[in-house]
Nucleic acid binder design. Structure first.
Lengths: 243, 243
DNA sequence: CGCTATACGGAGCACTTGCTCCGCAAAGTA
DNA sequence: TACTTTGCGGAGCAAGTGCTCCGTATAGCG
């Protein structure tokens, strides 16, 4: 079957300069808008800010998702690179770790689209920048291993980052510095002077019986819900004999 | 001016039984749906699940917001009551505190609408249930004050709750137990054996210069952005002389 | 300059979602 | 039962949003 020709005989012209300029303007505007408002923005807003029509935007990025992906790719890659530079620069492993959190929470936790996707992407990183970021954290974790309490994993550090990132967003408007206290507390909790072992990640044979105690009345939103519900909760209630 | 008459001369009939039944069905369905999907649900979905038409739903709750508010009121109040019961029941202050977090994160952190509004509502609690919840935490904090590191406030505990609640939601699908490790770490960081003082909440004269170091390139989404931007970032780029 | 491949803009389509309107059914009353 | 008041359902409106279509402009090439 015909493979996409690596160098077609009928060479396509190089892209026009205005096309290149427009593409860059779109990405630039999208970066700002996605940082401010997250991925829920109206595409028209991006088009307006970049001074470009909808047609132009959609030729360069056929789906909104494509544009978002491109922006996130750039942002995460840039983040990973600067984080790696800082990590290499610091000689004290603990300072490197705390510095990483400071940088991340001060600089990136307010980027709405980044934080929206960071959590998702951590489980299945489809973006290369995220993989690189994970590598940096792995390295920080490895270097500080003697200072960290035993059993702390890269995933713990990542989840802490996501968790604190949310705290930053939540407090940003009214108490923009409050998250520092939480970071301080968490980092202290990570230190090696705590000998008590951390609970297992996935608990196959936990001693907590599934649903016997505290959580009252709030149903699990996910699947398995139906196992406890008397009827499929998506089915409309039987309507009373009307009219 | 005429106050709403406490007992009008023309007494309105009591509401019909079917109206009462429908109202309850709506609230019940809305509770489930809001827990599962958050406040972004389609109102039609609530109507369908409660076996009621749109007209009925909107007579009982003229705005979607009214329905959401009613559901959240009930949920937060129930949460606060059960939390208070548990807090009173426990004799060990530390066990009471950890038990509260366990209950909250196991039972309520998966309730999407609750978590959406919890953060917002903590700053300006418009719901009575949230105020009650805060009181419970205040009490837990006061009772455990000797076991907590100096300077820990109710707001710290609340922010920690919001932060960990997000961690629960994020990991719920693929690693449903992982948040326990983070809770363990955070609680250890809260203990009294840490003597290092926590950073100030709002830092009026912080020694960190505003924008001199780490945070690279990510613009603050909120106001004050314009102070650094060369032009109002909401204004479209000057279009090139076209056609 | 003239020609053509390339790129552009924005009206408009399709779909979603909050909410309304109104003809009709049913509960309550006598 | 006859009648009034209250309540009901769901089609449909208005506004928002992702995306397309197509007539027109322009960059690049000779």
């Amino acid at each position: 079957m015909a493979v996409a020709e690596p160098e077609s005989p009928t060479r396509r012209r190089a892209p026009r300069v205005d096309a290149i300029r427009n593409r860059e303007a779109i990405v630039e505007a999208a970066t700002a808008v996605l940082a401010e408002q997250g991925t829920a923005v109206d595409v028209r807003e991006i088009a307006r800010r970049s001074g470009v029509g909808m047609g132009t935007l959609y030729r360069h990025f056929p789906k909104k998702e494509d544009l978002v992906h491109e922006v996130l790719r750039q942002e995460f890659t840039g983040w990973a690179e600067s984080a790696r530079r800082e990590a290499i620069g610091a000689e004290d492993p603990w300072a490197a770790l705390t510095g990483f959190y400071q940088q991340a929470l001060t600089g990136y936790a307010r980027h709405r689209a980044i934080m929206e996707n960071f959590a998702l992407a951590c489980s299945s990183p489809d973006l290369d920048g995220i993989r690189q970021l994970r590598l940096v954290i792995e390295e920080l974790c490895a270097r500080a291993t003697d200072l960290l309490r035993p059993g702390v994993t890269t995933d713990d550090l990542l989840l802490l980052l996501v968790s604190l990132g949310h705290a930053v967003q939540v407090t940003d408007e009214h108490h923009p510095q409050r998250w520092h206290r939480l970071l301080h507390i968490s980092l202290d909790g990570l230190r090696a002077d705590h000998r008590s072992p951390l609970p297992a990640d996935a608990a196959p044979g936990t001693d907590r019986k599934p649903d016997s105690e505290s959580p009252p009345a709030v149903r699990r939103p996910s699947t398995q819900d139906s196992s406890a519900a008397p009827r499929s909760s998506h089915e409309p209630r039987r309507r009373r004999t009307n009219r």
